[in-house]
Amino acid sequence: MLEASGLMVFYENMLALNNVRVRCDDNQIVGVFGANSAGKSTLMYALSGIMEDIKKKEAMAGGERITIMGEIRFMGQDIMALKPSLRAKQGIVLCPERRRIFSESSVLENLRIGGYLATTSQAKETMEYVFQIFPALVKLKKRTGGFLSGGEQQMLAIGRALMAQPKLLLLDEPLLGLSPLMQAILIRGTKVIRDQRKIAVMVTEQYARPVLPIVDYAFILENGAAVMEGTRDELLSNPDIRSAYFGV
């Protein structure tokens, strides 16, 4: 479904992504694990095209010079030249790190704004679905987004991304700073979404253990390079990877 190869991102002369190759097949949950500043978010931004927007803004303001190279193919089509809004239209929707909820809008409104790309019937159907997989949101419908807890915000962020009718959902550190209970709810939700909606998911995390049960395939990022890849069992059989990312 998605295949990126030779992906390089430079901030000035600093190499943030070094010749990264990742892929995600239909109906697959792919994990991308790596430490802080390993390039996870940069990868997500590069895939969703947000990097192009950041690059444009930096160039306009005379800030950092950002260079993006490589190839990204989505459903057989080269999308490297597409603007982020067009990539979202094609079906790559990013649910960003730190959630970026519309903090002054209510939960319901956040979802409605998310439904910008959906038709009226799609929006209605998806909204019901979001409340079905995250029932905790039902009671909070009228609550302002900024006043939700971190976990509630994350559920909302995933729901909002679903409203945009993704084919590939990019989740950037969805579990960051959440309680184990909330993490379990979100992980279960992610799996249900994949199983029921046939949406491929690419999820990044620093600490792989909570996500591990649901990933089909994973990549390990280190200093901007994809140093390891493999199925869950392949990664678990490597003792270095095991101690560094899985804590077992």
Binding site: V93, R100, E109, R112, I113, Y116
Partner: peptide, 19 residues
Amino acid sequence: LALRGMAQDERAALMLGID
């Protein structure tokens, strides 16, 4: 709604396909 989304967080709106 898209306008309000953009007013609050332009980049988040961009991720949802709002140009």
